[in-house]
């Protein structure tokens, strides 16, 4: 099992360190040829505009789309934005997932928050029951999802913060900033 982390900008090192704790082989992806031999890819948190521009400049958009057709891909925060097919503004997107995302949906940094989530699918897959503590930073929300997309978790007010479409996964929050490995374990199971 070898999981790549898109390393154009953002907290890719945090994802790599979590994957290493789970004894998974990892690779940093900055150019199309770095996708070779990977079983899955994580697109980390960061600035989605920066990641999109660098992906365009180094001709990664098409190779990433191709990779995502047959491999597991997970986007956290900026990564979820990049995976989506509509954000209501002009910026490079992969369009792999049929989700509409709104950037900075909660406001500015002083509105960033931590909260506990119920994520049944995750609890079932990992045989656990305790709530998932999620860290949201200038976070996006998933405004709406297409027919083939399963909502994994929503806030109390109904706003969607995690969704899955087959082997593709999007979360508004940052599992890589916590000590809870369950989301990474869940993603590894999608990649196997």
């Amino acid at each position: 099992m070898k999981i790549g982390v898109l390393a154009l900008q953002g907290d890719f090192a945090e994802h790599i360190s979590m994957l290493k704790k789970l004894a998974v082989e990892t690779a940093e992806v900055r150019l199309p040829e770095h996708l070779k031999g990977l079983d899955g890819l994580i697109i980390p948190g960061g600035e989605s505009t920066t990641i999109g521009k660098l992906a365009t400049a180094y001709k990664l958009i098409e190779p990433l789309r191709e990779f995502g057709k047959s491999h597991a891909v997970w986007g956290t925060c900026a990564g979820a934005i990049f995976l989506s097919n509509d954000i209501g503004r002009d910026q490079p997107l992969l369009g792999l997932m049929d989700i509409k995302v709104k950037r900075n949906a909660f406001g500015r940094q002083v509105d960033s928050f931590e909260t506990d989530l119920e994520i049944d699918e995750l609890f079932k897959a990992t045989g656990t029951e305790h709530p998932y503590h999620a860290v949201f930073i200038r976070a996006p929300i998933i405004e709406s999802v297409g027919g083939g997309v399963k909502v994994l978790s929503a806030l109390d007010d109904g706003r969607i913060v995690a969704a899955q479409e087959g082997h593709l996964l999007a979360t508004s929050f940052h599992p890589e900033l916590t000590d809870d490995p369950r989301f990474h374990e869940y993603f590894i199971s999608l990649a196997s």
Partner: peptide
């Protein structure tokens, strides 16, 4: 659970999102 804002994790976390950037 009540959402918590302005935590140490949140403050450090935004800087983590800026890593590898200018």
């Amino acid at each position: 659970m009540q959402a918590k804002t302005g935590t140490w994790t949140e403050k450090k976390g935004l800087a983590q999102m800026l890593k590898g950037g200018v």
